[in-house]
Amino acid sequence: MSSIADNIGSVTRRIQKATLKAGRDPGSVRLLAVSKTRQPDELRVAANAGQVAFGENYLQEALDKIEALKDLDQIEWHFIGPIQSNKTRQIAEMFAWVHSVDRLKIARRLSEQRPPGFPPLNLCLQVNINDEDSKSGCTLSELPELVDEIGDLPNVKLRGLMAIPDPDQSEADLRMSFRKLANTLRELKRASPEAGPMDTLSMGMSDDLEIAIAEGATWVRVGTALFGARPSKHSQS
Rank of each mutant, 00 (worst) to 15 (best):
L174E: 14
N183T: 13
P26H: 11
K87N: 02
K180D: 09
Q60I: 06
S192P: 03
R175G: 13
R186Y: 15
M203E: 08
S10L: 13
I150D: 00
H99C: 05
Q51K: 11
E149T: 03
E187T: 13
M94F: 09
R159G: 13
V11L: 03
P231Q: 09
L20C: 05
L72I: 14
R14K: 11
Q39P: 06
Q236E: 07
A172M: 06
M203F: 08
I213K: 01
A172H: 08
K105P: 03
L63I: 02
E149K: 12
A182L: 08
V34Q: 03
D73Q: 13
I106L: 14
P193D: 08
D25C: 05
M176Q: 15
P144D: 02
N48R: 10
G151S: 14
A182Q: 12
L174Y: 08
P167K: 11
D64H: 06
H78D: 10
F178S: 15
N122G: 13
D166P: 09
N183I: 12
G55C: 05
L123K: 05
L153R: 14
S232I: 01
I164A: 07
V101S: 01
F227Y: 12
R89G: 03
L110S: 10
D41M: 08
A47N: 14
T19Y: 04
G216K: 10
F178C: 15
L188A: 10
D41H: 14
K135W: 08
H99A: 02
I150P: 04
P154K: 12
V127M: 12
F118I: 02
K21H: 10
